[in-house]
Structure formats: structure tokens, C-alpha cells
Computed example of a mutant assay.
Amino acid sequence: MPSIRVLGHAYRAWRRNRAWAKHEPETPYLADLLSGAPVCLHVGASDGRHSYVMTQVAPKAQIHAFEPSAFTFEVLKVCLAWHRISGNVTPVNAAVADAPGELLLVTPIKMSGRMARGYAYLAAERPQSPVRPDFEDKGAQVEPTAVTTLDQYCEAQGLNRVDFIRMDVEGAELKALKGAEHIIERDRPHVLIEIHPLMLEGRFSGSAQAVLEVFLSRGYRMFALNADRLEECSDVDVEAPWKDYFFVHPDRAADLPDGVFKARMAA
């Protein structure tokens, strides 16, 4: 039986989904990417709000939702059940990186004493405070988490095609993408990824530019929301601590549903 705290967090997410409230501004554009019965990987699934949107715009979608936090994973499962989309979404209690194994999930504690679950990230060792270069904390909660790679997971699950990846991993973007090189080469999936320049450099010895090279070197085109307008771009906004970017490959343009991405890719 889920705890009262789990049920409370799940109810808040469920209620917001039902009201279509407080979704990230990029989520409406999923309808311009997904149709038919796409296979989707939701990496850093949290309470599953993006998974919910995917099932609404593509009801036959099959989604694999990765969430490393033990607490948030319970919230995710409750939300899936309440929305009656458990048949569409496979929850996976694991983090994603460039090699399988075990790492630590570091969840900062806000100055108010509350858990900053949306700021949790992977680490090999317990960090000293401040635990993030972009967050003021009063310590952190640390828990071990299983780690897989997307390539390994897809092989084990017999996923012979991946159509879409939503990734929000708080600075571990480059590690996660290195563990997905095979499916990116094979399938050229559409990708919506949150890029964290400060975390990439400060905690993962990476860079936003290296993340871009994964896609741009393979011929992907890059889009981002600026204000309320979707615009094509070629670089990351380094002034922002994080920002979402869409990557769409020309080889997949013909399969896009009618919408803004199909129109832009034809231009």
C-alpha cells in the first residue's frame, strides 16, 4: 500500500494532468512529433507527466519510463494506475548512463527543508554542499540506484525500433546519450532533451557543445522555444541554467504527423 506522502504527490500530478495544467511549454509540441504507435523512451520520468501527454497524443504509444528515485518511482506507478495507462507505460526503477552498474542519486534539500526532487542527479560519490552549482541547498539525501544504458535496455527488451526519446537527467545528458549510440545510429529517433550547461561542466566533466555534437554530427536539425515561438537554432543558450531542445532528423521527416515540425523540415 503506497504511503500517504506518495498518494499526496500522485494526486497532485494526477489532478494537474486531468486539468492539463502546469505542463512544461514544450509538451503541446509532442502532438507534432508522435502518431501511430510510436515506441518512446522517457528518461527521468519523475511522476510521469510527459508519459501521460504521450499517451494522449498517441494513444497506441508504448512508453518505457525510467525513474531512479525510490519515492518518485512509487508516485509514478500510482499515477499510471489512476490514469489507466499502465498498459501503455512500462515503469523502470533505474537511472540511465553510459555503463550499467550502480551510482548514487543525490537529491538536494531546499533551504526550507523540503526535498528538491526535480533537481536530483547522479554521482559516483556523495558531494559536498553546495551539491549543485545552480542551487542553494542545506545538504542532500543520497540513495543508491541501479543504472542501465538505453542500448542495453532496448536489446534486453527486444525493442527493434525507437521513435522518440524524452530526456531530463540533470547534467547526465552526455553519459546517457553515449549509452544510446546504437539506437540513435539505427533509428534516428526524435529527441526532446533538457540540456544543463552548468551541471554538465560542474558535475559531469562534459559540455553542452558535446551534447549538440551527438546530434548535429549526425545531421539532426535543432529547435527550441523562444518565448512562445518554435525556432530552429544551432547552439545552446548558455545564459540559461537549463533549457529544452528538440532534435529531428531529416530521414524521419516523412513520418511526422502534419504540424509545425513537418512544415519546418520541408522548408
Rank of each mutant, 00 (worst) to 15 (best):
E170N: 01
E170C: 03
G171H: 11
A172N: 14
E173I: 05
L174K: 05
L174Q: 13
K175D: 06
L177F: 11
K178Y: 06
E181K: 14
E181I: 04
H182L: 07
H182G: 02
I183F: 09
R186I: 08
R188L: 13
R188F: 14
R188T: 12
P189T: 04
H190N: 13
H190I: 07
H190M: 13
V191W: 07
I193C: 09
E194Y: 05
E194P: 08
I195R: 02
H196R: 08
P197R: 11
P197S: 13
P197Y: 12
L198A: 15
M199S: 08
M199E: 11
L200G: 08
L200A: 15
G202K: 07
G202D: 08
G202R: 05
G202Q: 04
R203L: 15
R203E: 01
S207K: 06
S207R: 02
A208K: 00
A208Q: 04
A208P: 07
A208W: 01
Q209N: 14
Q209P: 01
A210P: 07
V211W: 05
L212A: 02
E213M: 06
E213H: 12
V214T: 12
F215E: 03
L216G: 06
S217C: 12
R218L: 03
G219H: 11
G219W: 10
Y220P: 05
Y220A: 09
Y220S: 02
M222I: 00
F223V: 06
L225M: 12
N226E: 14
A227K: 15
A227D: 15
D228N: 15
R229F: 08
R229I: 13
C233P: 02
C233K: 04
S234L: 05
S234T: 14
V236H: 05
V236C: 11
D237G: 09
D237H: 13
V238D: 07
V238Q: 10
V238M: 12
E239S: 13
A240N: 12
P241K: 04
P241S: 10
P241A: 07
P241C: 04
P241V: 03
Y245A: 02
Y245V: 02
F246C: 07
F246R: 00
F247L: 12
F247P: 01
F247G: 03
P250S: 08
P250K: 10
D251M: 09
R252G: 00
R252I: 08
A253V: 00
A253P: 01
A253L: 00
A253I: 00
A254G: 08
A254V: 10
D255G: 04
L256E: 07
L256Q: 08
L256K: 09
P257L: 10
D258I: 03
D258V: 10
V260G: 07
V260C: 14
K262P: 08
K262Y: 08
R264G: 04
R264M: 15
